[in-house]
Amino acid sequence: MAGTVLIVSPFTSIGALTLAAGIMAIALGMFEVFHAVELRVEAGRPAPGATAERRPLFRSRPHPQH
């Protein structure tokens, strides 16, 4: 069905395909940001049963090579 639409109306379908791909890229980007924040928070939590203090989410001192 999509192939038929591409053949019958190629220029309109190019615009629709570009719009659909853009919307999908934005949605995927939002999902990736949410997942990255979730992983970052999880990395800061101690393992179950561990008595160590919670590690900071970001380093407080610069990297040794800088």
Rank of each mutant, 00 (worst) to 15 (best):
M1V: 13
M1R: 09
A2H: 07
G3Q: 11
G3F: 11
G3R: 12
T4R: 15
V8A: 11
S9R: 08
S9A: 10
P10A: 07
F11K: 10
F11Y: 09
F11V: 06
T12K: 09
T12I: 09
I14N: 02
G15N: 01
A16R: 12
A16N: 07
A16S: 11
L17D: 02
T18C: 04
L19T: 14
A20Y: 02
A20L: 05
A21S: 08
I23Q: 05
I23H: 03
M24K: 13
M24I: 09
A25L: 03
A25K: 02
L28W: 05
G29Q: 06
G29F: 10
M30C: 08
E32M: 09
H35W: 15
H35I: 13
A36C: 01
A36L: 05
V37I: 12
V37P: 00
V37L: 12
V37E: 05
V37W: 06
E38D: 10
E38G: 06
L39A: 14
R40G: 02
R40E: 04
V41H: 09
V41E: 10
E42A: 15
A43G: 04
A43N: 13
A43S: 14
R45L: 15
R45V: 14
P46F: 10
P46R: 14
A47V: 03
P48E: 05
P48M: 05
P48C: 03
A50N: 14
T51S: 15
E53I: 04
R54M: 08
F58D: 00
R59S: 13
R59Y: 05
S60E: 08
S60N: 07
S60T: 09
P62K: 02
P64Y: 00
P64I: 00
P64F: 00
P64G: 01
Q65N: 07
Q65L: 12
H66R: 10
